[in-house]
Design a binder for these strands. Sequence first.
DNA 1: TATTTGACTTGATCTGGATCAAGAGTATTT
DNA 2: AAATACTCTTGATCCAGATCAAGTCAAATA
Lengths: 196, 196
Amino acid sequence: MMADFEAFFDYIQEISGKLLSEDDKHLLMAHFKPKKLRRRQYFLQEGDVCKYIGFIVKGSARTFTVDEKGHEHILKLSLENWWLADFESFYLLKPSRFNIEALEDLEVLQSTNAQIEEYLKAIPAFSAMASIISQNYTIANQNRVQAAISYTAEERYEDLVKNYPHFLQRFPQNMIASYLGLSPETLSRLKKNSFK
Amino acid sequence: MMADFEAFFDYIQEISGKLLSEDDKHLLMAHFKPKKLRRRQYFLQEGDVCKYIGFIVKGSARTFTVDEKGHEHILKLSLENWWLADFESFYLLKPSRFNIEALEDLEVLQSTNAQIEEYLKAIPAFSAMASIISQNYTIANQNRVQAAISYTAEERYEDLVKNYPHFLQRFPQNMIASYLGLSPETLSRLKKNSFK
DNA sequence: TATTTGACTTGATCTGGATCAAGAGTATTT
DNA sequence: AAATACTCTTGATCCAGATCAAGTCAAATA
């Protein structure tokens, strides 16, 4: 469990470019709770309020919706050192439209919105990290929207290969397809053709 | 010009829930520069670094890319009290892939990234506003990605009518179509059919 | 006033990617 | 080891939405 926090502390210090004091560390350990989920367990279920934000120490997860035809659509695929939450639900305390499910056995450190607010005030490295994360999020989302709107299936796949090559190792192909807004059949064919 | 700033101050105070002191206001006026653009002028051109972020006092704009076939894709439509920038370029000082063009005569208050950092440190109302804006952005982007990935053309249009009804008054239909990732013909037909 | 330009509509056709269906290979469970 | 369930592939068909083309109307410009 100590090891979990070491990775977390390293992450905060690296992203923020600031050091955590011993007091900071104790404060973080006081209110970030380790939580383990087995493969296929849910971190968040549709209809529930997303009370916790989780920092992924180990494992992977997907955030997805189910439409009225029963089709699943993956909004986000998440790995180590990513944050896990439906932010709309988390910030506004609205019931979530999303499910977040562990794709591999998952270890997270989780905390509440109220507690995060405290950390932002109390720990300079934490709030520096938060603004950088928020920037990165904004950029990544901007790119994802642009890809969705203006790229063809093939371009979206190439974009993924270029920007998130490790996704291909960690996630099954049908999940990648859904993340790209494609049927698994289309992605399969697309890969075959791109070899010529 | 004073009137511009009044609207800006009101906005900051309303969003943040905090008051601006006279000093705060003078500080803001010192480094937010009013800038006017006529219809069709560019706030940002593809290939340039987005050095300024603008707060829209009056008018409207679109953020778009041009693909290799010469087709335009609108990523964002912006109105009064919105912020205008390509954040990837603005934060990372990379040449932008986007164009930002005034759709109506446009008045913005603009500032640089370095100056914004100063404001975040110096003005509590400003930094409170920034975190709320950032939350709203994250939520809006999350929803936009989800709509792009999992909704049909018709559902995306209905979503827009529900969430941004004023867009229909302010933006021509072909711009709305592009924003939704549709051809103008498809949007036209779609509206006709939705009347029965 | 005449002319050009842009916004929108309507029709005909085309196509990228979805859907349906079947089979092969590989994990997982019993 | 057998049974069951996933994952991926390949083929055949289908369809939502794009593209191409033409025409109307209103606004901007000369």
